[in-house]
Structures are given as C-alpha cells and as structure tokens.
Design a protein around this nucleic acid. Structure first.
Lengths: 154, 154
DNA sequence: TCCCGTTGATTAACATGTTAACTGAATCGG
DNA sequence: CCGATTCAGTTAACATGTTAATCAACGGGA
C-alpha cells in the first residue's frame, strides 16, 4: 500500500512518490544526458525523434509518424515545417488519399542522422552501463506492460 | 542486450523500445486518466502539482517549490502569477533573504485542493487496481533507483 | 449524383519547456 | 567598507504540449 498523507481530513499519495512525478523525473534524468549532444547539432529532442522514426521506415504519412514519434499532430505540423526549411525532410501529398501528407527524409536528412547516431548510441551505452542492461530491459518491459494495461483498461 | 537496428552502416536502438520514448508514453497513459478531472476544475497539471506540494508543507521558497513540483523556475514564475490572480496562493518576500520569494496557499487554495483531492485519489486508485499495487511499488522503486543512479553517475 | 458525417492535417490560442539574458540581493575577499 | 562574485527570481525568445476550431478530401447512403 502506498504511503499516504493524512491531513485536514483528506489524503493523497505523497507527491514525490507517484507515477506522474517519478515518470517525469526519470525521463528528465535520462534526457539530460542527451541534451548537450542534441543542442550541439541544433535539433530539439522532438525533431530528432521524428527524424529517427523516418530513418527506421522510409516514408510514411503524418499520422503514423506522429504516433510513432509520440508527438501530437499540431506539434508535428510545426516540426515538419522547420525540418523542411532546413532541407532535412520533404513532404508530398498521397495520390491515393489527398488528405494524407507523406513525409520522407532527404539524403541530407539521412546523412545528418547517420552522422549523429553514433554519439546518441554512445550516450545510451553510458546509461546502460550505469544502470545495467538487465535492469533497463526489465524496466522497459514494465513500462510497456503499464502502457498496454492503461490503454486498454476500461 | 537491446535489440538493434542495423541499417546503412549505423545502428540505433529501436525508437519504440528506448527509455526516453517509453517513459514518455507511460507518463502520457497515466496522465490521460487525470486530464478530464483537471480540465473540469480548470487547472493545468503543473498548477495542480504546485498546489499539491504547497498543501504538503505549508510555505516554502520558490526554488524548493520548483524542485519538489518538478517545474522549471521560469514556468513556476508564470504559474505563480496565474494562481495568485485566481486567489489560490499568495507570495511574499523572505525577510531574512530579500532574494527569496515565499509561497503559500490561501484558504481558498487549500479548500480548492481539499475539494478536488478525492477525485484525484479515486483516479489513482483506479490505476492501482488496473496495474496492481505491488507492480506499481516495484516500478516506483526502480524509477527512484534510476533517478538516483543517473543523477550521481559521472 | 448529391448531401453529410468522417477523417487527416493545419491553424489558433494559451500554457509550459528550455536556454539565455537580466535584475536585485546577499556574500565573500581584500 | 567595497567591488566582484554568487545566488534567487524574473523576463525574453523560441519550441512544444494541449485543446478547439477550421478546412479540404473521402466515403457512405438517399
């Protein structure tokens, strides 16, 4: 049973020991290690994520891209505009369905990722060394289970 | 060992199976359950967090408040301005140290939290029921360990 | 074919995240 | 006591999060 605060007749979990806060702080600690690298290459975390997803699977429509990169549609619209202006991606209309926007990396975008990827991998390896790969895998499994359970549960 | 992508001579962990993404998605799934309640009371997630922290320990300076609520100082400045205008908190200068701003809930702010807290607790209870308290505690422990390790590790 | 509800995407409006610059207050060293 | 430095907080500027509104393209049914 989680520790509780009992005060003035109401109770709440201690703020510092709740899923929302600890998930936020954990993510913050992880991202802190990537931030200098991302800043050095003048890309935001979200822009990097979008390009990485595109690298994994050539072209795709904006909806799928948003879902895979965990970015909301309005944010993606702005991000794509920025990346397009920088020549890192291109967009075109889907000829089968005029509503969809197909997005793809340009050769320059692909080169960009390939040049930065080793640094990203190195940082992730540092984290793996600090935490231990087993513990990370366990944690990833539990996070996936949480996501699965909450996304379906009632 | 984490699964890897090998493509064009570079490799990265699969985007969908990394700490940054899964921590983000897990938090998103959790928050999704609180959002309707927060919106119904016209407070943002961060505003709610700030007030909850204030409820736990009467008054405190802005720096400590920011740290406990996991909000950056610039965001906190804006949040405090908003909450002050709504009459939910008050601020005053620390007489011992003129640089510090002391923040406290107003009686109205305290009442607000007490009135909303039961709904928040009910939602958290739902989540506990879906996931199981044991698994949540385990997850919270692992997240705390991750935070501890990464915040100190080199 | 035409109407209409749905869907993919963008835009708008406001709040927060993020970094840097800036202000005022406290502190340290000479 | 003073000047330089450090510290707490705010402001600025830009990017993203979040919800709602908007718009064009689809698609089904009368």
């Amino acid at each position: 049973m989680a520790e509780r605060l009992e005060k003035d007749g109401f109770h709440l979990s201690r703020t510092g020991r709740t899923l929302p806060i600890l998930l936020l702080r954990a993510r913050e600690q992880v991202m802190e290690r990537f931030r200098p690298m991302l800043a050095a290459h003048d890309v935001t975390e979200q822009q990097w994520r979008v390009m990485r997803v595109l690298m994994e699977t050539e072209a795709m429509d904006a909806s799928e891209l948003a879902a895979r990169a965990s970015v909301l549609a309005p944010s993606l619209s702005r991000i794509l505009k920025t990346l397009d202006q920088r020549g890192l991606i291109t967009t075109r209309k889907d000829e089968k369905d005029g509503r969809r926007t197909l997005v793809a990396l340009t050769p320059g975008g692909s080169d960009f990722i390939k040049s930065v990827a080793p640094k990203s991998a190195a940082i992730y390896a540092e984290i793996e060394e600090l935490l231990g790969q087993d513990r990370i895998e366990t944690l990833l499994d539990e996070l996936e289970a949480l996501i699965e359970t909450l996304s379906k549960g009632r």
